[in-house]
Design a protein around this nucleic acid. Structure first.
Lengths: 373, 373
DNA sequence: CTGTTAGCGCTTTCAG
DNA sequence: CTGAAAGCGCTAACAG
């Protein structure tokens, strides 16, 4: 039905092998022959059969990109950046297979299997990881298999997998002597400095004079949630240790979405009407927090300061402009893309941590004199 | 190296054919045999070789989704919706290949070829089309080839391709007699009612009393841009025909991004300092417009009303909340996904138009008494 | 530089 | 219900 290599070969009066060589361009072919082949390709409107060549060559030009939800700009930006490194004009000409896991560990595993089935050239896992030990183990196994099958694995925006404790060896130093680096073939990682960013953000609030600070955190079992909370607490410990006692009470958990921010803010207000600042799990949550505060008749930042995290494009244009922590998502995604394609060498220790930056804007200000509403 | 069907067959003591049948599940196999095979699959950690089965079966489980830029929530939401209809748990278990065209016609064609090479099961083209006749023709050809190769083609958020005029036949009625419907195998289309939405939006502004209305439009050669402008003009013609003379002067074109909104608003202000309202090409552009107006010391909506288009998630949370036209992007994307998978029958005439809805919010209000600033 | 020859791993008639 | 056999279309040694 469809036109094949053989058809082109016949038409150009050469062998199939020659056509293949012209098309892949990785082998010397006489100029005249080449143009004869190319003409035949044109005339026949020949299009290579991807599956056939993938089978024969044992490689595919698919790269998997796992995201929570591609509709969320946080993931959209990273996915876009990953792709920017592998379009048809860039070296590679690879195609990105975007998989929405919806944050479900099960779907994450399923998609990895599907990608292994496609013999994907690489897989990039973006966003926070779920910290369930069972899932972590299953994930590590899947990733190991993928790597064994020749798929390059890159983590972007999540920490490296915890060291599998193997045969029960405990602690460092027990690695087989002579093995120079046990992480040599660990998945490459582009991690975010969530802890540091959160620390600086809370520090900013404290230095403005806030002492009643609520936190609308993300889902409890996520690495990102944990790291941001740790940064928050570490800042409290440094600058206002007396507040640590209250931190549990002033922290609520929810999803990384607007309505969690809305509900979370209301809950915090219930627990502590004297709140002067609210930290949100991310910018989207912050928007929900702002909406709830406004609905309660509170002004931002005069009555309550609000801060987000991520610095998504809309944050700078919010009114008031949102104080947040910038993560260079595009830069990180692009780097992950390059690592996935082997176009950039592995960072030391296989982990690159990208800096985060405090963006102090108009949504945070000193608390009103008196501190409470 | 990798474990193959044959390995599984050997281990289960059956033929490769049987294993294949068990795995694809589309053929009767004895219960006992089946479980023996399944056990072998488990034990060997067998994962089907996608390219091989795609080659043999002449079908792949890849679906292409072409977007301008997946980092833009407008496209992210549609892409997400398309996928929501074909995840592993839904019928299909298809994988979405997301292709960022960056709005370039050339890249669009290139990606279509790449997807044809993959023998994609379907392709969904989202967002506005470029109206260059040459490109339209090239695109139509590509799509016809894809369709001929068995790939289902769906347009989402763009109008159906203009009827190819074939051998120069002009006008309707010249279709070959007996051909019941020339659009029978035209690409399925989920179109947006951009014209109607724009008409209602401009009508809203006019009914508030605005007479100095600027328009920061999208790129000139895009269908979406043209349709929204047409709706705008049609509303003027209906309610304030005297303003039509000025519409050219009060329209500027730019990209669909924030900075175009910013620059466009400044330019409009230069041309018409007495502006009382600005319509933006979309919500993102509107954000830029708002920023520019604020930088000029103008209040929204007291001094100038602003409206967007699309109703992206952040729009309702902007301050003031943005008046805009809601497009049910998720619903549209989901429908496109179902059409792509053949899980929904073709709409009449192969074109489904989704309604758009005026969302009148706080960013628009009557102009100040006197009309000018 | 070019042709020949084997498969890559799976699906699918066609016979049992 | 199961097996045998014949490819699907391309690539990659290996010879010329």
């Amino acid at each position: 039905m469809a036109v094949t290599l053989a058809d082109v070969a016949a038409r150009a009066g050469v062998s199939a092998a020659t056509v293949s060589r012209v098309l892949s361009g990785n082998y010397p072919v006489a100029g005249a022959t080449r143009s004869r082949v190319l003409r035949a390709v044109e005339e026949l409107e020949y299009v290579v059969n991807g599956p056939a060549s993938a089978l024969a060559a044992a490689t595919s030009d698919l790269v998997g990109v796992l995201v929570n939800d591609i509709a969320d700009p946080f993931f959209g930006i990273m996915a876009s950046a990953v792709q920017s490194e592998m379009g048809p004009e860039k070296a590679g000409g690879k195609l990105a297979v975007v998989c929405n896991t919806g944050g479900s560990p099960q779907r994450e595993l399923t998609y990895l299997t599907l990608l292994q089935r496609q013999r994907a050239a690489a897989v990039v896992l973006t966003g926070s990881a779920v910290e369930d030990p069972e899932h972590t183990a299953a994930l590590a196994t899947r990733l190991r298999r993928l790597a064994a099958a020749g798929t390059r694995v890159v983590l972007c925006g999540r920490p490296p997998l915890p060291e599998a404790d193997g045969e029960g060896a405990d602690g460092p130093g027990t690695a087989a002597p002579g093995a120079p680096d046990s992480t040599a073939d660990a998945p490459l990682t582009v991690a975010f400095d969530n802890r540091g960013g959160a620390r600086r953000l809370t520090g900013h609030l404290l230095s403005l004079g806030h002492r009643r600070v609520g936190y609308v955190a993300g889902p409890a079992e996520r690495t990102t949630t944990r790291h941001r909370l740790e940064g928050h607490r570490s800042a409290l410990a440094d600058h206002a240790p007396e507040l640590l006692a209250d931190v549990e009470r002033l922290t609520v958990h929810g999803a990384y979405d607007r309505s969690s921010g809305y509900d979370g803010a209301l809950e915090l207000l219930r627990r502590e009407p004297g709140l002067t600042a609210v930290l949100a799990a991310n910018d989207t949550v912050a928007l929900g927090v702002c909406a709830a505060l406004r609905d309660r008749g509170l002004r931002i930042p005069e009555d309550v300061s609000v801060a987000g995290f991520d610095d998504l494009p809309f944050s700078a244009d919010a009114a008031p402009a949102l104080t947040t922590v910038r993560i260079p998502l595009h830069e990180a995604g692009a780097r992950a893309g390059r690592l996935a394609l082997g176009r950039e060498s592995a960072p030391p220790g296989c982990v690159a941590t990208v800096r985060t930056e405090l963006m102090a804007r108009a949504s945070t200000a000193p608390p009103r004199a008196g501190g409470a509403n």
